[in-house]
Design a protein around this nucleic acid. Structure first.
Lengths: 255, 255
DNA sequence: GAAATAGTGTCTATGAGACACTATGCT
DNA sequence: AGCATAGTGTCTCATAGACACTATTTC
């Protein structure tokens, strides 16, 4: 029992004269980040083109930004994700949430590997500054196109799909889209963001009632807009996470 | 940017004459499983006592069942979780869902490690058979007690807490508790299970309407009960996963 | 004043919660 | 008959969706 090959960690039986289990072959440990933004009226995701070098897997294919956990640099998984994000976007404090993990013997040709996937939301406006940091092999892609024909490296298409599902789901009952906007933002802007992510229109009146009832916005004064009546600007009362609404958005609650 | 120590995997820059990044130090990769059941009118979780051997971390403490991924045995993470579950409970086809991952330099004294946590639901009835497989250092613990004073090995108290939160959350809007019952079960039994997991009573009429409207149950004929009017027995139409209800349970939906 | 956008009022159908009721079997 | 459990009917009130309305600015 409890030994060797498999476990040893949480086994009841004394392990006797076995080599320590944790000296056995270890899978690779990586972190990948699905970075979303709303740009040009569309939901976009950041991808990185894989190098063409010999020995690199999936050469030339587009992939999620990510890579190996660095046991020297990264104190934990989240820190590693934040580092990857910072390297690619120069954004420091995005919304960042763990998505799940994917691990198998075959997902990376180099051997058994497990990746810890995160997803991030960043305002497109924050990127202007970061342009310098963006290399030529980094670009934003329309999410819808990527879902229609999945061609990403490794199992990244699958991970992307899971991220979009999670995002779309949560948007139905949380204030997540607010993290896709730079402050101050207006309610019409926020509504537009919801509509872009959800892929459908939502009623203005209901939307406003809902947002204000959730009590997560703070008025910041009127904001100048390209034309017409000046809208109220808002910021988040608490940037540490989204608010959860009591009910869902969908038109007919139907099962 | 984008080089060395850290990545190399998804970096734009040709890695030139660097040692391959994946030859660097690798974290340990483990899987832990939070196994729930409902037993004696309480929500229980399965724990394993850690061995007392020298060199083993957290000797004598109770921990979630789990251990190192075995790159020979385990084709993927889920398979690893299923294996751990089978080893401890002899249950083959439980409800099994990924919970998240926890990884840091310090969570295991042996070094940088990342665990992939899963949670499982099994009917207590299925365990009778498994008793043989259960070693002396395995036992069921009342979840509420463990949450009140967290004393588990490693960061397992944190993982358990996350699992309970996820479970309680999902129970509000899914048919998950059905996976805690052996078939056939009755609606009163199912209701009881909901109440135990949620920690509060739910209205009978509303409960039944809801369950039947969700159309995930199949009548299996009347079932003998200890007394009185015989209830209808049901089984799941689809054991592959829970149904999601359109709305939540909570009394006042209020925000 | 017209146009365009921001923001509010109001009506209604739905459906969940609450609770009273009926049904069926056991002793 | 009486009790205990299984199962149903019904009333009400909150609210989400729909949509019509008002408000404030620019030209």
């Amino acid at each position: 029992m409890a030994t060797r090959t498999s476990q040893a960690k949480q086994t009841g039986t004394p392990a006797a004269a076995q080599p320590k289990a944790h000296d056995f072959a270890r899978p690779y440990t990586t972190v990948d980040v699905v970075i979303f933004t709303v740009l040009d009226d569309g939901l976009k995701v950041l991808l990185v083109q894989r190098p063409l070098n010999q020995g690199e897997p999936c050469p030339g294919k587009w992939a999620l930004p990510g890579g190996f956990v660095d046991v020297e640099l990264d104190s934990d998984l989240m820190a590693c994700a934040r580092r990857k994000l910072l390297e690619k976007t120069a954004v420091r404090s995005p919304y960042l949430e763990q998505l799940g993990s994917w691990g198998s013997a075959t997902r990376d040709p180099r051997g058994w590997s497990a990746t810890h996937a995160y997803f991030a939301l960043i305002p497109a406006a924050d990127l202007a500054l970061a342009k310098g940091a963006n290399a030529a092999d980094v670009d934003w892609f329309q999410v819808d196109h990527l879902l229609q024909r999945p061609r990403l490296a490794f199992d990244h298409s699958e991970i992307l799909q899971a991220a979009v599902e999670r995002l779309r789901n949560k948007v139905e009952y949380t204030s997540l889209p607010a993290f896709l906007l730079a402050e101050p933002f207006t309610l019409p802007q926020l509504q537009k963001t919801y509509e872009i992510v959800l892929g459908r229109a939502v009623d203005k009146s209901g939307f406003r009632t809902r947002m204000l009832a959730a009590d997560f916005l703070e008025e910041i004064g009127f904001v100048e807009s390209p034309s017409n009546r000046p809208p109220m600007g808002y910021r988040l009362k608490d940037r540490s996470g989204p608010v959860i609404f009591p009910r869902t958005f969908s038109p007919r609650g139907g099962s």
